[in-house]
Structure formats: C-alpha cells, structure tokens
Nucleic acid binder design. Structure first.
Length: 490
DNA sequence: ATAGGGTTAG
C-alpha cells in the first residue's frame, strides 16, 4: 500500500485495530504508527488505547504507557483508559484517573457507575449517581442492574420507577432481576405493563428473561413468554431458541426442551451443548451420549462445553468408564486441552463412584493448581465414602485457598462427626467462631401455581409445614425399604 | 468511549 504512495488514514487504522485478536497484533499496529512518526489526529492513539485494553493487565499497562506519553488528550482518551481499567476490575486506579480528569462527560460518569455496580459497591455507585450533573437512561439502568444483582430489589424498583426515560433495556433489567430471584408476580405484572406501553421483546430481552427463569426454576414465566411470543408470531433466532432449550431443561421439562431442539431448522453448537447438558443433569446419561454421537455425525466439532456436558452426564448416570474414555478422547481425538473444569468433572465422577485413590491421583497430576471447587468436590466425595484421612489432606489445601469459607468448615466438621472424632469437631467449631463464619443455609425453591415456595433446612415457616414433614417421613420410609440409608448432619 | 443477553464442573 505504501509502495503506491498511499498512506493509511484513521479509518484504515480503525479497521486494522478492530481485526486485532491478540496483543502482539495491536503492538504491530502501534509500532507501525510510531514508525510513520505521526499519529494523524488523536483518533489513532485513542483507538490504540482502546484496543490495548482488551487484552488484560499486560494490555492495560501498554495502553497506560501510551496514554501517559500522549501530548494531547481528549475526553475520549480518558474514557477509554478508565473503561479499560474498570473492565479489568482495577477500580482504584480508574477512580484516580476519573478524579484527575479536567473535564468529564456522561460517558465518564456512566463508566465509573458501571465499575462500582459490577463490583457490587452500590453505596459508592449511588454516591456518584447523586453527584452526576445529568443522567441518561444508561445511568439509570446501570443503577437498576447493580441493585438487582446485589439483591436489593427495593432500591432497584425505586430507581426503575423514577427513571424518566425507560427503554427496552431498563425494562429487561428490572424484569430479569425479579425473575432471577423467583419473584414471579412482579416479573409477570411488569411484563404485561411493558407490553401495555407498546414495547415489544427483542432477542436480548428474551435471552435475559429466559436465563433468569432457568436459574430460578420459574417454569411458569418461561412458558408464559413462550405462549406470548407465539401469539405475536415473533420469529425466534437460534440464540433465543437455545435459551428456551436451557430454560426448559433446567426446569426439568426435558420433553419441552427436546421439542424446541427438534423443531429448530438451524442448530448451532450451543443448541447441542445445551441439550446434552440438560439430559445429563437429569440422569439421562445414555441419551446424552447418543445425542453426542448424532452431533458428531452431523458434522459439528465439539468444544470444551460439550465435554463438560458429557462428563456431567456420565457423573449423574454413574458411567465411570465412559467418562474416562471421553476425558482422554477430548484431547487425543478432538484436540481440546482439558481445563480445570474438566478435571473437576472427572474428580467428581471418580469420587462419587468411590474411586477416591484415582480421584486424588488425578488431582495431584493436574497441570494446573486445583481451585476451591475441585477441592470441595473431592471433599464431598470423602464425606460420601467416609474417608477421614484423605479428607484431612484435602482440607489442608482447601484452608490455604479459602481460609474463611464457612462451607468448607462445616463440610469438614461433618466428616469428623461421622468418624466420631468429637475433639476435632470442637476444634473446627472454635475456628469457625474465630473467623466469624456461619454457613448460610442453602435454600431450594419450587414454583406451584404461580407462587414460589422457598425451603431451608429445619424450615417450619411454611403454612403446610406439618404436612410437608409428614410426607418427607413417608418418602424416607419408602426409600429405606429399597435400601437407602439417609444421613443426618449437624 | 458507557447499560440488558445463549451452553461453563460442587
């Protein structure tokens, strides 16, 4: 290009930088700009900063270096740099730059709001929000999103109601907030209201809400949305249909999930992965493996998610040999290097199957450091099979990684209790007190006729509590008859 | 340069 005497302009660099999918490519473009000895206008270094910031800490440092040597900076230079820091979680540094800025615009404020909201620091976010000279719908929806993720639906709702310029995105945020928490009534009422003001769901809306339904098990709302978009003849994209598959599968409606899957004219890898995983988590191991063969037969290349689904399916169906084979095949046949998640699946598979030695061996031979999840999985398997010695070894690692996680303390204390080692139970209790941790009770929820019922252990708050416990007793007796020995923990 | 969104091991 240059041999012809033509020099790149802003747009050339813009396209070039957009195409850079690695740090070294950005560096090459940067070197080229330097060599030409001119940056054009400020657009080029700004675009360079932005591209650098996409590549983690190293990229940010390179971006910062450029930012520091720039002779002239405009508000976009500052915003790009702050945005990069915020995306990487370096909020303190972002805040410093924000304070130093000679002039801030709405984007600067919104970027900082987003950073605090993503970090769950809603007090700080609210402080900024109140100090902003003016706010747009992005400022409002960032606040609604942050409060909703922090679990404060009252604040989220107050801000949503106060927002003077509601668009589809802020409606999506508040409705999926309610849906995620299983608050069906509000979610449904707002969904109807949204249609009343003339807003129609788009892909982003449907995907958000369906993902929220999948998480909280709100089958009712998911079905309602399905019916409503059928009424208005919404043409569902593959992504939306995938969200339906996942929602139905997570809610236990495998037939409905498979119905959506079968009816799709165009499936992508995510469709297959969601369906395989859905079958897997509900114990349909054989069906999941068959679907995998069909997928390969139809020419799809499996990815790391496919193997997580497959290994999960093997675990839930007790298919130890099959799981081992897939684990080794994923690298040898499909060229996918197992990640810590895959090792986690394998350790769960082996551990639940009682092959604790093999599970422990795999843990030690992992090419990466085990994380809390992997160790917790193995500890759970130790409890299941009453292996106190191995549990102690695992716990030593675990306490180093997550010294104050109350979940691990209670798991370990249960293991000691089961072995009758009351001295160590008392020790653990003491440690728990000193770190101040009490394990929050896990809760299950179920939706019956548009109402969500939540249960925790020893819960007696439900109006039909007595009936429920009577039913549990009966179930436990039935289970005993077929050989199951229930365990009660302290 | 800023807001919602699909599959991810316990």
């Amino acid at each position: 290009m240059q041999c012809c005497g033509v020099y790149p302009d802003n747009f050339t660099y813009s396209f070039l930088l957009k195409a850079c999918n690695s740090l070294s490519l950005v560096q090459m473009v940067h070197a080229h700009v330097e060599k030409l000895g001119f940056y054009g206008d400020i657009f080029v270094p700004n675009a360079l900063i932005d591209s650098y910031c996409k590549f983690g800490c190293v990229g940010i440092r390179a971006g910062m270096k450029l930012f520091m040597v720039m002779e002239e900076r405009d508000v976009v230079s500052w915003n790009s740099m702050i945005g990069g820091l915020v995306k990487n979680g370096e909020l303190d540094d972002a805040c410093k730059l924000f304070d130093e800025m000679p002039k801030r615009d709405m984007v600067s404020w919104n970027t900082m709001l987003d950073g605090y909201a993503k970090a769950g620091e809603m007090n700080k976010a609210f402080g900024l929000f109140e100090r902003m000279p003016e706010r747009n719908v992005i400022s409002w929806s960032t606040m609604v999103w942050g409060y909703s993720k922090a679990g404060d639906m009252a604040m989220a709702r107050m801000l949503f109601d106060k927002c003077p310029m509601k668009n589809l995105i802020i409606w999506t945020t508040i409705i999926s907030g309610y849906a995620e928490k299983g608050i069906v009534k509000e979610a449904t009422v707002l969904y109807d209201k949204m249609e009343e003001v003339g807003l129609k769901p788009d892909d982003g809306f449907l995907i958000s809400i369906l993902a929220a339904c999948a998480e909280s098990g709100m089958l009712g709302l998911g079905k309602r949305i399905h019916a409503s978009i059928r009424r208005c003849r919404f043409r569902c994209s593959t992504k939306v249909l995938n969200a339906f598959i996942d929602m139905y599968a997570k809610c236990g409606c495998l037939d409905a999930a498979f119905g959506v899957f079968s009816g799709m004219s165009r499936r992508d890898l995510v469709s297959w992965n969601s369906m395989i995983h859905g079958l897997g988590i509900h114990g349909h191991g054989e069906k999941a493996l068959k679907l995998f063969s069909r997928m390969v037969h139809e020419g799809f290349e499996p990815d790391k998610y496919t193997f997580i689904g497959l290994l999960c399916a093997c675990t839930h169906a007790g298919l130890i040999n099959e799981g081992r084979n897939y684990f080794y095949a994923m690298e040898k046949v499909y060229g996918i290097v197992p990640q810590v998640e895959h090792y986690g699946c394998m350790i769960d598979l082996l551990g639940r199957g009682g092959l604790l030695e093999e599970a422990f061996g795999l843990l030690r031979n992992m090419p990466m450091e085990p994380n809390v999840v992997v160790l917790g999985t193995l500890l759970g398997a130790c409890r299941m099979h009453n292996d106190v010695d191995l549990a102690k070894a695992v716990c030593e690692h675990l306490f180093k990684l997550a010294p104050s996680d109350p979940g691990n303390f209670s798991l370990m204390s249960n293991i000691y209790a089961q072995a009758g080692d009351w001295v160590n139970v008392a020790n653990i209790r003491k440690q728990m007190k000193s770190t101040g941790g009490q394990k929050p009770s896990g809760a299950s929820s179920i939706e019956v006729e548009e109402e969500v019922h939540e249960f925790t252990v020893f819960d007696q708050s439900h109006p039909k509590s007595n009936d429920i416990y009577e039913m549990i007793d009966r179930l436990v007796q039935d289970l005993r008859q077929v050989g199951y020995v229930p365990k009660a923990y302290i």
